[in-house]
Amino acid sequence: MNEKLEEIGSRIRELRELSKISPEEMAGYLKVPLETYCGYESGHLDIPASLLFKIAQRLDVDMSLLLTGQEPKMSIFTVTRKGEGVEVERRKQYRYQSLAGRFAHKKAEPFIVTVEPRSEKPAVYSHPGQEFDYILEGTIKIYIHNNEIVLNEGDSIFFDSSYDHAMEALNNRPARMLVIVM
């Protein structure tokens, strides 16, 4: 089990209990089965970024607190210098770097996501909300709702992330993109 997922789940459980919200209420709010939600809290299941965002909203905390254990302090602006974003180990296929981790009460979560080339088919995800992806480097194939779209450097896509979607780096090279989850 991923130690980082366990830490995030533990923080969520503690904050949920402090807020006097039952696991059943939280699962209902997130529109996921109770068993799935309990898997998030135990660290056995990876939590989609959009659900982390919704959990943070329900608990009235910033998503950064769930991810890092530190409360963001900035409320007017925050600057993240090149290479200094908070690394978030979320999924084996993707590496996330949070770009606004110190800004409190965000309405969206911006990340730099690196997708490494792999020989196996990418795992499919869905999560509530919307997502904007802008390709910074490389080429990405995005699978979304029975469509395959190839995006090159400078291309972007905005989509309803409640539909199944996955991404893979093409040309045997890593790809980097700016991702904003709302």
Rank of each mutant, 00 (worst) to 15 (best):
residue 90 R to S: 10
residue 90 R to F: 02
residue 92 K to T: 07
residue 92 K to W: 02
residue 93 Q to P: 00
residue 93 Q to S: 13
residue 93 Q to D: 14
residue 94 Y to C: 04
residue 95 R to S: 14
residue 95 R to D: 12
residue 96 Y to G: 00
residue 96 Y to E: 00
residue 96 Y to H: 05
residue 97 Q to T: 14
residue 97 Q to G: 00
residue 98 S to M: 12
residue 99 L to E: 03
residue 99 L to M: 11
residue 100 A to L: 12
residue 100 A to I: 08
residue 102 R to G: 08
residue 103 F to K: 13
residue 103 F to L: 15
residue 103 F to E: 10
residue 104 A to C: 04
residue 104 A to Q: 09
residue 104 A to S: 12
residue 104 A to I: 07
residue 106 K to L: 15
residue 107 K to L: 14
residue 107 K to M: 14
residue 107 K to Q: 15
residue 107 K to S: 13
residue 108 A to G: 10
residue 108 A to P: 00
residue 109 E to V: 04
residue 110 P to L: 02
residue 110 P to W: 01
residue 111 F to I: 05
residue 111 F to K: 00
residue 111 F to N: 03
residue 114 T to V: 06
residue 115 V to S: 04
residue 115 V to A: 12
residue 116 E to N: 12
residue 116 E to I: 08
residue 116 E to R: 11
residue 117 P to S: 06
residue 118 R to C: 11
residue 118 R to Q: 14
residue 118 R to S: 15
residue 118 R to V: 02
residue 118 R to L: 11
residue 118 R to N: 10
residue 120 E to Q: 11
residue 120 E to L: 09
residue 121 K to A: 11
residue 121 K to C: 04
residue 121 K to D: 11
residue 122 P to T: 07
residue 122 P to W: 09
residue 123 A to V: 12
residue 123 A to R: 14
residue 125 Y to L: 12
residue 125 Y to E: 12
residue 126 S to G: 08
residue 126 S to V: 01
residue 126 S to L: 09
residue 127 H to N: 01
residue 127 H to C: 05
residue 129 G to P: 01
residue 130 Q to L: 07
residue 130 Q to P: 01
residue 131 E to K: 09
residue 132 F to A: 00
residue 132 F to E: 00
residue 133 D to N: 13
residue 134 Y to D: 06
residue 134 Y to A: 10
residue 136 L to T: 03
residue 136 L to G: 02
residue 136 L to C: 01
